[in-house]
Design a protein around this nucleic acid. Structure first.
Length: 272
DNA sequence: CCAATTGTTATTTA
DNA sequence: ATAAATAACAATTG
């Protein structure tokens, strides 16, 4: 489920536990989310440690603990973070639970496409620092986008937007939202965009990231109680899954097809 | 029973 | 050899 802003939404939930000690750690040690991580080692290191702070980058989260311990979380397709009261009893898909005095921090993931990473050391782990520079950072330039589109010129633009090495944090619905705003059909070859279209794509990447963070993660405002609570009807998002949905800009019935291996939604009138 | 799912990676194909 | 397409991963829901 989670893309950029949704990941930030979930991180802010767990931020309730900043400054508090972890009394106990519950882990489904055999769950596949602990790929390449010795769950027992993680449990030992985090038990008794204090959760200091956290950050997000792209679709990933990093939680910093006392004692030079770092916990990475990737939510995959179906993962989510929750905060539960101390009396809560973990259920089947709660693969990792950090028990604090006032609350329990729960990582739940039914499909187990997510991942939990662990690092012990003085500085941020390599798997964190190698994440591509954010779309909202100065490094995300028109020139960088132009170069990338040229390199992937034969692939449909929809597939290219999903590539994390250049568009970190963009997932399926954000890619469709960006293309809808930039008025580009998802099936267009990346190399077919002219300079004006490339500038529009760059601009709308940033606009969708900013808007998604505001509406979905309450950045600059209040954290929504539920995901997508504040998503406006002027966005494609609120129409893309409804049966017989229409373009919120021109009213044309929306189209759906598999492009770049994912279900895509677009307006055949607005997007060319 | 069949299809679908907002992610990533390994494998196959072109 | 490189890039694009496809399969696979797992669980649940309609």
């Amino acid at each position: 489920m989670p893309e950029l802003a949704e990941v930030e939404f979930y991180r802010r939930r767990w931020a309730a536990g900043h400054g508090a000690k972890v009394l106990r750690v519950l882990a489904h040690e055999r769950a596949k989310i602990f790929r390449g991580v010795a769950a027992a080692k993680l449990v030992r290191a985090l038990t008794g440690a204090t959760l200091l702070d956290s950050e997000t980058a792209a679709k990933q989260m990093l939680f910093r603990f006392s004692g030079q311990n770092w916990l990475g979380v990737h939510l995959g397709m179906s993962g989510e973070l929750r905060v539960e009261p101390p009396s809560y009893a973990p259920t089947k898909h709660d693969h990792l639970v950090l028990v604090q005095r006032e609350r329990q921090l729960v990582f739940n993931d039914p499909r187990m496409f997510g991942a939990v990473l662990f690092h012990h050391g003085a500085s941020e782990p390599e798997w964190w620092t190698r994440i591509a520079p954010a779309i909202l950072s100065p490094a995300f330039t028109v020139a960088a986008v132009t170069d990338f589109l040229a390199r992937r010129r034969r692939a449909p633009i929809k597939a290219v937007l999903l590539m994390q090495e250049r568009f970190p944090g963009v997932g399926n619905w954000m890619a469709d939202e960006i293309l809808w705003r930039a008025r580009l059909a998802p099936s267009r070859a990346a190399g077919s965009l002219d300079a004006t279209e490339t500038r529009a794509l760059h601009r709308e990447c940033r606009a969708v990231c900013r808007g998604a963070l505001r509406y979905n993660a309450g950045v600059g405002g209040k954290l929504p109680a539920e995901l997508n609570e504040f998503m406006p009807d002027s966005w494609l998002f609120n129409h893309r899954w409804e049966k017989g949905g229409h373009c919120p800009r021109c009213g044309t019935p929306l189209r759906h097809a598999t492009i770049g291996g994912r279900t895509s939604c677009w307006c055949p009138r607005c997007q060319r």
